[in-house]
């Protein structure tokens, strides 16, 4: 069995600070990390490998420095990393990202399962997984919280929904996106860290894949960011004090629920 895990490099914090004088964003010295949801995707793939034998390949699209997070993924148990990196890929929205990732998948070939995180912490779109599946023409299910059974032909799993859970049977090859509930990611072992140090991440540039240039990067992105701004939360904060706090709060709560 061959499993591909999609791994995105994201900023380590989402804090956006506002410069009070210039009214602009300050983002300084932010380290990059593996997108938190993708750590569950990695762990799940490695568990399948341990249970039934599989080759697990990490795939990322990003700047050359994203090689580091693929190496980190190797220290967490994946076998090999591929990084799609080229200036021609830059400026991609979710549609162009999915297309570019699909080129990497085609290069890797003969896969049975693709695992993505539910969403990336910088964009929170949760669109790349389903879009990638559609671009490849395979079935997908989002928000998987448990894999019940997997064999050469099918995967049976639990999906978390707004109303509860659903048990789903999917024909392979397929793509799933996973939520945090699915597992508890392990820490890298010393042995794996050594292996990671010595392994090579394969870089795929524009010339290494068979791409339609019109579908890449900014050019292949139907959506454009027109502007960005920091949301202003003008909060009227009232502290409830004194000996009758609970009584005061009770009246406030009653006021709120009677009104709505």
């Amino acid at each position: 069995m061959k499993i591909i895990v999609c791994i995105k490099q994201v900023p380590g914090t989402n804090e956006v600070k506002m410069d009070p004088v210039t009214n602009t964003i300050i983002r300084e010295n932010i380290e990059s990390i593996i997108n938190p949801f993708d750590t569950y995707a990695i762990e799940e793939a490695v568990r399948i490998k341990e249970n039934m034998g599989a080759e697990v390949i990490g795939l990322s699209m990003g700047i050359p420095a994203a090689e580091e997070i693929l190496r980190e993924a190797i220290s967490l148990g994946i076998d090999k990393g591929f990084l799609l990196s080229d200036r021609k890929f830059a400026g991609a929205d979710t549609l162009a990202t999915s297309y570019t990732l699909s080129l990497g998948v085609k290069k890797i070939k003969d896969f049975d399962l693709i695992i993505c995180g539910k969403q990336a912490s910088d964009g929170d779109t949760a669109q790349v997984g389903p879009s990638l599946a559609k671009t490849l023409g395979i079935a997908y299910v989002t928000d998987i919280s448990k894999i019940i059974e997997i064999n050469e032909n099918n995967i049976r799993c639990m999906k978390i929904t707004d109303d509860g859970y659903e048990e789903i049977l999917l024909t392979l090859p397929a793509l799933i996106t996973v939520v945090k509930e699915i597992n508890m990611p392990r820490l890298p072992s010393i042995k794996r860290m050594k292996i990671a140090q010595d392994s090579q991440v394969e870089i795929l540039t524009f010339n290494d894949v068979e791409a339609d240039e019109n579908r890449l990067g900014l050019k292949g992105s139907p959506t454009q960011v027109r502007k960005t701004f920091i949301p202003i939360h003008n909060i009227n904060n009232e502290m409830i004090e004194g000996s009758e706090k609970a009584e005061k709060l009770a009246s406030i709560l009653l006021g709120k629920i009677r009104r709505s």
Binding site: L95, T125, K134, D143, T223
Partner: peptide, 22 residues
Amino acid sequence: TSNGRSLAPHISSTLQTGLTAD
């Protein structure tokens, strides 16, 4: 919703159009 966010990218990527989430 959980269904809507899963359905929308299926449609937009097939139609090759833009989709803005949430």
